[in-house]
């Protein structure tokens, strides 16, 4: 049993140390640092179930260690052959049943609470559509479409409708709430809630192809006032772009002209490819890259290089010259509403 002790004193502290190093994960991402009602409810029931399970673990560990220390073979004698014990067996059948009933009650109430998306939708409703490998966010009441960054108001439950255009993805913002799958051809719903303004990291949680790992997005929570303002600005910018950025417009700058010719058909409505209305405000490019000129140019030239399986075609120098690319990049970084 010496090696067992060594293990106990070797491995366990090592893991504790590792845990200490990484704390409870990164704020804004980790489910262990909830920043909204959903994740708080979920962490609470995680801890309840963990407590019950640790109780069982302690009991089993005590018996286990005792048995392994006490009943090591000492001589060649034959121990008493025990058939069983109805009392003992009844105890370890009934006690777990009681423990599980204690766990089942909050499980059911919480499941019901988390399913109250219909009520939330009366307040605020957002449509989330997953695509290979980007996220579309539509505000149906305001008529605004955006992508990659989901803006929500703080302090209330926001109703979310979820679906997918291609394969199954899953919408997960660990710091705000657990995940809900986006199924092509089917509609799902959930609610999101953020306590305070802030930025939260979202992930795709269902294998969807080679760039599944790179399908990150962000949730930005704003105070109600800022949120209303943002929606209004977005709407204004979107309408303005719809009016000016057309092929018939004779007064386009070079950047605008390249955009209209090469980008508009997909990025225009924000339904085929992510809307670029507030591209200049975004922290990340393509969901995970730093949003700077260099990365953006490389991305436009060859999206496959950065995101295997992405549906955007690359644009060679023959299609967009270096000068035109400079102008296009300037134009794109101008697309902001702040």
């Amino acid at each position: 049993m010496k090696s067992f002790k060594k293990l106990l004193f070797g491995i366990v502290p090592m893991m504790m140390f590792a845990l200490l190093l990484s704390g409870c994960g990164v704020e804004g991402l980790s489910a262990l640092r909830p920043m909204g009602e959903g994740a708080e409810i979920q962490l609470r029931i995680i801890l309840i179930s963990l407590a019950i399970m640790l109780f069982v673990l302690v009991i089993v560990t005590v018996i286990y260690v005792y048995v392994l220390m006490k009943f090591r073979r000492k001589d060649d004698s034959i121990p008493k052959q025990v058939e069983g014990s109805s009392t003992l067996e009844l105890i370890w059948t009934v006690v777990p049943i009681i423990l599980l009933i204690i766990l089942a009650v909050p499980t059911i109430t919480t499941t019901v609470e988390l399913a109250k998306a219909k009520e939330a939708k009366k307040e605020e409703e957002i449509n989330v559509t997953a695509n290979l490998y980007w996220w579309e966010f539509e505000y149906p009441n305001a008529g605004v479409v955006t992508g990659q960054e989901l803006v929500i108001p703080t302090g209330k439950r926001v109703g979310i409708n979820l679906t997918s255009k291609d394969v199954i993805h899953s919408f997960w913002v660990p710091a705000l709430s657990g995940k809900t799958d986006t199924n092509p051809g089917l509609d799902n719903e959930m609610w999101l809630h953020a306590n305070e303004p802030g930025t939260f990291y979202g992930k795709c949680a269902e294998l969807c192809g080679p760039s599944h790992a790179l399908m990150d997005f962000k949730v930005i929570a704003l105070d109600q006032e800022d949120y209303d303002q943002w929606l209004e600005d977005m709407k204004a910018k979107q309408d303005e772009n719809a009016e000016t950025l057309t092929a018939d417009n004779q007064n386009l700058t070079v950047g605008e002209a390249v955009y209209v010719e090469s980008c508009l058909s997909c990025h225009g409505g924000g339904k085929v490819a992510p809307s670029l209305t507030n591209f200049g405000d975004r922290e990340w490019l393509a969901g995970y890259l730093e949003n700077n000129e260099e990365e953006l140019k490389e991305w436009i030239r060859d999206p496959q290089e950065k995101k295997q399986g992405a549906l955007m075609p690359g644009f060679s120098e023959g299609q967009i010259s270096d000068e035109e690319l400079d102008a296009l990049v300037d134009f794109l970084y101008d697309q902001k509403i702040d």
């Binding site: 962490l43 995680i46 179930s49 019950i52 089993v60 599980l100 709430s177 657990g178």
Partner: peptide, 24 residues
Amino acid sequence: PSFLVGGMTGVMLSVAPADYQYHD
């Protein structure tokens, strides 16, 4: 003990609302 840990997390996973976090 190894299987016990798997069993414990199994019960934790069975709690549907908690599973929304654990799943995948």
